[in-house]
Nucleic acid binder design. Structure first.
Lengths: 109, 109
DNA sequence: AAATAGTACTAGGTATTGCATAGTACTATT
DNA sequence: AATAGTACTATGCAATACCTAGTACTATTT
């Protein structure tokens, strides 16, 4: 049983919640999101973030615009949509319920 | 984007943490575990729990014994091993870190 | 006694997503 | 021109929650 693997499994479903929340506060491009997550020691790689952003965009939760960069290739800035905000609210509720349940079950004597 | 699907994804990696914690408190057989989880509104089905218990057993984190039942088929009671207790400690730490990170990233203004 | 219901466990296949990897492209620096 | 840093796209894999089908045991009903 591999701890790193279990941690990766734990991240499934949670990352989109984090991404939507971050973008609700401020638009950003992929690398900024990766950096923001890394600051909280949520290490996420490109192979994860790009497909995730694309899925959220395809589902209408995000939208984006291109912006030339003065120091490298152009960047794709993502913004949350009103639908994305609604969904984020649902995810917030689900997360609260999940953590409450888990903490109840795992409280050590 | 399907909320139910996202909730199922969120459960990945978390269920083994819950199961280990429950079994640390008291040995149990599958249906008891399902009931315990259901009380906390963590709905888990047989197709999930049995393979999960088998995986944990194969990795040495659980052990089991058969017990005849007076009201139906025999039951497989699972118990946590010392290795399982160690791993549970690691999972506890991982969970704390993950929730802290997520809450930091998703705190609404 | 046979059929049905409730209960417990096993096995196989599917969908989804984080991750690894390969590749393209833009700009700055060497 | 080559290299480095940066940003994005595409593809395939591993793992796990879940769905479904099936076997088996005991109690209850027909």
């Amino acid at each position: 049983m591999n701890l790193e693997n279990t941690k990766a499994q734990m991240r499934k479903g949670i990352l989109e919640y984090c991404i939507l929340a971050m973008l609700k506060q401020q638009e950003a491009y992929a690398s900024e999101l990766i950096r923001g997550l890394k600051e909280q020691r949520l290490l996420v790689v490109e192979g994860t973030i790009y497909p995730l952003l694309t899925r959220l965009k395809n589902d209408g939760l995000l939208t984006y615009r291109w912006e030339e960069s003065t120091s490298g290739p152009p960047r794709k800035y993502y913004m949350i949509t009103p639908l994305g905000r609604d969904f984020l609210g649902e995810l917030h509720k689900s997360w609260q319920e999940l953590t409450a349940a888990v903490n109840e079950l795992t409280t050590l004597d």
